[in-house]
Computed example of a mutant assay.
Amino acid sequence: MSLGLLLPSALLALLALAIPLLLHLVRQTEQTRIEFAALRWLIARAQPRRRPRFNEWLLLALRLLLLALLALWLAQPVLSGRPDLRAWVVVDPSINATQMAAHRPANLPNDAQWHWLAPGFPAIEQPAPRTTASIASLLRELDATLPRDVKLTAIIPEQFDATDAQHARLGRAVSWAPVPGTASFNAAIAPTPLRIAAFVDAKHRPSLAYLRAAAIAWATQAKPPAPSATLREIARMDAMHPNDTHLLWLASAEVPPQQRQWVRNGGVILLAQDSMAASLDWQDAHVAWRSADGTPLALRLRDAKGAWIRMLVPFTPESLPALLEPDFPRALQDALQRHPPTATRAWADSVEPVVHAPSTQSAQSAQAPRPLGGLLALLIAVLFGIERWIALSMRRFHSA
């Protein structure tokens, strides 16, 4: 650490140190002439010259120190030093201590600094903050602020949201450590419960159990919890409720013509893979649902304010293994949305940061200077109070 001055010319104010010295000397030479008759006839003799002596030396020292500190304060002192080059390990707040210990990267230095991957990068000893900030944005912020030679390790969930749809381009290599079987806070956000009617024939009835389980998951995870009857089976089209927003047509038969207008007014119909829909042209459809390996599972076709969704595989564990995954309710809810949200969720391995342009920041450059003006001002105020107290005490003593 070293001390620097932003305005060294202000040290000329140290010349003011001569003022208290002169004042103390002048006060010693002050004499009062007193006429005394008995001494009029004595012969005047030369008096030996006395060396100047400073009385009240403590008060004088305080005043000199006050002036010196005031001159230093005007020079704007700052404290700077060499950067801390210890390695950084940032951990996504959605990862708990058990997962962190089980998947601790090898070869981490013992003196590494551990922080949460969240705005402000709080120390790992603090409670895990809940944040929806983009992981890529936080890494770019760290890359711009840390010295070039600081090694950076990121322990992140296997899946997370708030991605930038591209690899983060950083000025340093990052040790990327996804934790299997975890997802960020964003990925764990419960879907909004939907009001769904289901028309099911005997052939497709086994599929209904998985869809009911997804509906119960939506209802119980909602805040506040919604009624469990989010998905309601109907036997006829006239049994649909006016507030129903979705219809699951799990039947091989053709969808009744009257439902076409219901879709155009804003409804959404999910068709089984073998449902008849001769009146629809799927040439303009796009993929509404993909598996983890990118295989299309369902198509979406816009129709005025609503949409048709056609499954490409049956709702069976053999054809759709995602039925048995914990994330199935979330994936189904995303597919059923009237207006699907922009895809922001990604696998950690697919968005690992890449080195774009190495940072030119010197590893030996000093940290941002820390101003000391506030501390000096406080010290000056305290010393001034002490000086006034001593001066008044001495004045009372002499007057007594």
Results as ranks from 00 to 15, higher is better:
Thr316Val: 00
Leu23Gln: 03
Arg40Glu: 14
Ser362Gly: 07
Ser291Trp: 02
Thr344Tyr: 03
Ala391Asn: 07
Phe121Gln: 00
Ala198Cys: 03
Leu14Ala: 02
Pro296Tyr: 13
Thr98Tyr: 12
Leu21Cys: 02
Val268Tyr: 06
Leu142Phe: 11
Trp114Gln: 12
Leu280Gln: 06
Arg45Met: 10
Pro242Tyr: 02
Ala219Thr: 09
Ala202Asp: 09
Ser365Ala: 15
Thr344Trp: 02
Pro20Met: 01
Thr163Ala: 12
Ser291Gln: 11
Leu392His: 14
Ile189Asp: 08
Val313Ala: 11
Pro227Ile: 12
Ala368Phe: 00
Ser291Val: 02
Thr145Asp: 10
Trp57His: 06
Thr153Ser: 15
Ile95Tyr: 08
Ala368Met: 08
Ala183His: 09
Ala288Gln: 06
Ser137Gln: 15
Ala168Thr: 13
Gln126Cys: 00
Ser350Phe: 03
Met237Ala: 11
Leu208Val: 08
Leu324Phe: 06
Leu65Met: 11
Leu323Gln: 05
Arg330Phe: 09
Val90Thr: 07
Pro129Arg: 09
Asp164Tyr: 07
Leu152Pro: 00
Trp218Glu: 14
Pro147Asp: 04
Thr29Tyr: 13
Gln166Glu: 06
Thr182Asp: 04
Ala226Asn: 12
Leu39Lys: 10
Pro20Glu: 01
Asn110Asp: 12
Leu58Tyr: 00
Arg45Glu: 12
Ala357Val: 14
Arg27Phe: 13
Val287Glu: 04
Glu325Thr: 09
Ala285Arg: 00
Leu299Gln: 12
Ala213Ser: 10
Gly306Asp: 08
Leu67Thr: 08
Gly4His: 00
Ala209Val: 11
Glu254Cys: 02
Ala215Ser: 13
Thr295Asn: 14
Glu35Arg: 01
Leu12Met: 03
Lys305Cys: 01
Pro193Asp: 04
Arg195Ile: 10
Gly81His: 01
Leu139Gln: 13
Leu70Asp: 00
Ala381Met: 15
Gln166Phe: 04
Pro20Asp: 07
Pro256Val: 01
Asp303Asn: 10
Thr163Asn: 15
Arg86Val: 09
Arg232Met: 13
Ser2Trp: 13
Pro178Tyr: 03
Pro329Gln: 04
Ser279Tyr: 06
Pro48Ile: 04
His241Leu: 11
Asp143Val: 10
Leu324Ser: 11
Pro20Ile: 05
Leu5Gln: 01
Phe315Val: 14
Arg260Phe: 13
Pro105Thr: 00
Ala348Tyr: 09
Trp389Glu: 01
